[in-house]
Amino acid sequence: MKTKRILIFCSLGAVLFSLFLLSMRLGSVFFDTKSFFSALLGLDGYSTESVIIYTLRLPRTVAGLLAGAGLGVSGVLLQSVTDNKMASPGLIGVNSGAGFAVILALSLPFFPIKLIPLAAFLGAFLATLAIIAIAGRMGMTKNTVVLSGIAFSAILSAGISLLSLLDADVLVSYNAFSVGSLAGAELDGLLLPAILIISAIAAAIAAARRINLLALGAPIATSLGVNVKALRVACMLVASASAGAAVSVVGLLGFVGLMSPHIARALVGADARRLIPAAAIVGADLVLAADLCGRVIFAPGEMPVGVLMALLGAPFFLGILLKGGHRDA
């Protein structure tokens, strides 16, 4: 059993490494193997290939990796908190909060475009805080978390619709954000999201044993010494920070936070100590694979990763559901 799990983790890591290399190599401009490795290792000095690799492909690859990992971990945490396998970052207002903040920022004259990712992150995080506050007034049970999330997200979505109706130009800019894309990622802008996402993964792994107990329900978890309400709040905050950081990098990328935990659970089981790192790797694998497909299939143009994710992800996810994956604990 243990050997099998080690093998699964090695395979996931190998897939991620391969996708990382492929993502650096493939795109609208094709490199042969020799020139790719020469440019990658810096053997040719400053060349067109090395510029493409290091200024275009490396940032989008790192961004994809971070976003996938962040959304994957966020999904696991939220599915544990709500004991609902259909939960994803959107449930705690990440998408609607980030979306509302971005469209609001775009509507404001003179708002610096560079600060849009920060607005997205803050919007996501503040929305989660509001949902925690509302759910907290109703006992912070798994149901009140879900219901508060749905209700508050609906209010923010109405705000997004209203702002988009007021200014058609804003709607065009907002659409680019709402689709989810890795194009235009820059290494400079990835440092803060990277710190947040890596810290979130570390915090989630550190709390994994306690997160496991949430699956036993609040009464048993309480009996085993867990402060269930505090753990739920902590998980939601970490999930929001992680997904908010991911959204600030790629925009509203759907399905990753929902699918990654399901795939990871099928591979390594329900134990959060294995599930959290596995979902992070699976999430990164999915985003890199979708982005790669979008660049290779539609070269010399490209299809945004969000569209590909939905096109490929939705049928795949339905397949998992039909096979009974939704019955996982």
Partner: peptide, 11 residues
């Protein structure tokens, strides 16, 4: 404390 309804988990 063991409640009446016990969850059927994947553990």
């Amino acid at each position: 404390y063991l409640p009446q309804n016990l969850p059927i988990t994947q553990f």
